[in-house]
Amino acid sequence: MKHMLTINDLQARIEEKEILKGINLDIKPGEIHAIMGPNGSGKSTLASVLAGRADYEVTGGSVQFNGKDLLELSPEDRAKEGLFLAFQYPVEIPGVSTTNFIKSAVNEKRKYQGLEALDAAQFLRTMKEKMKLVEIDQSLLSRSLNEGFSGGEKKRNEIFQMAMLDPKLAILDETDSGLDIDALRIVANGVNQLRTKDNAFLIVTHYQRLLDYIVPDFVHVLYNGRIVKSGTKELAFELEEKGYDFIKAEVNEATA
């Protein structure tokens, strides 16, 4: 099957600091990949670089997304091409309601795809349906975006937005961080219901916990800017049991 995302020797830095030192990763439609790794290994950088955050400078390598050179696209065009980043720290934006903002986002994407804008009734219907998925309340969506939201509400709002935008590839950047077990279950349940044979997920996480609920097809371990080990979901269990030290030891041994 054709690859949806092909990352080839991707290198990136922030200011003078090299963070990604040659990432290789292929994702096909229908797959769920998990990226795990200790703090500071470059997991969130990878997510940010893929979404197009300007703080990072790509210094080498390439990323193909559905046949397009992803790195040449603006963040908004990446989104309209079907890439979605669920933020680790969703931004609070006073004065902009989720409802208004997601309506603009949905309609800009539709325009890009050559589709008519949703009218108020269609939009409301879609919204109601997606709200159920993440058990989010209408009143929350009428409020200023993420302002005063609890950690769990912010993450559920991310998954709600994902459901509304129906991406081809969703990157979940430490979506499990700061979530209690109920919120974790709701978020995971939302993701599982959105999963189809045509879309894919890249789940960035520090812990194996989320992977109890969202079962990955592949697990990759990122360490020191490189993917040092790949495997199936069993690798996640091994990491949970042994910690990251054994990986570090393996890598250090190999490079010694």
Binding site: A51, G52, R53, A54, S74, P75, E76, R78, A79, K80, L85, F87, P90, V91, I93, P94, G95, V96, F101, I102, S104, A105, E108, K109, Y112, S144, Q161, L165
Partner: peptide, 24 residues
Amino acid sequence: EDALFYLRARGISEQNAKALLLHA
């Protein structure tokens, strides 16, 4: 800048994202 990126990452053009933030 963080707010601007957040909106753009949802597919809202830079110009509209700025306008939304200024309006807010």
